[in-house]
């Protein structure tokens, strides 16, 4: 068993839907999908982004793509043109999620 950052076993892409951010998390190898499913829960993601995300986190599974999709409500300071953030559209939050540690 080793503790690694998600970046070792997954990649991701993120974007915006209004004030919500979507983060798609994809296993680099099919065998790592089970690790994502068991350890990268909506609760953990909500805690991981506690400084930025002020709403609910929903997780969706795409076993065919070995991927999870997270929808983080109230995360972009109003989003789009309203937000005062450098990353108003949450484009870098994909990599922020890859900082999370999991056991493999």
């Amino acid at each position: 068993m080793a503790r690694v950052q998600l970046r070792e076993i997954a990649h991701a892409r993120s974007g915006d839907k209004g004030d919500a951010s979507n983060i798609g998390l994809i296993a680099l190898k099919p065998e790592h999908y089970a690790v994502l499913v068991s350890q990268v829960t909506a609760e953990r993601v909500k805690h991981h982004f506690r400084e930025l995300c002020h709403g609910e986190v929903t997780r969706y599974e795409l076993p065919n793509l070995h991927a999870l999709n997270f929808l983080l409500q109230k995360t972009l300071d109003g989003g789009g043109t309203v937000s005062l953030r450098t990353d108003a559209q949450g484009k870098t939050l994909s990599a922020a999620l890859l900082r999370m540690e999991v056991d493999i």
């Binding site: 990649h11 915006d16 839907k17 979507n22 798609g24 994809i26 793509l65 991927a67």
Partner: peptide, 16 residues
């Protein structure tokens, strides 16, 4: 597959 899959999960909600 990797790059295209990143685009598939980009800015989606419920995948079903």
């Amino acid at each position: 597959v990797a790059g295209v899959t990143e685009q598939l999960v980009y800015e989606i909600g419920d995948p079903r």
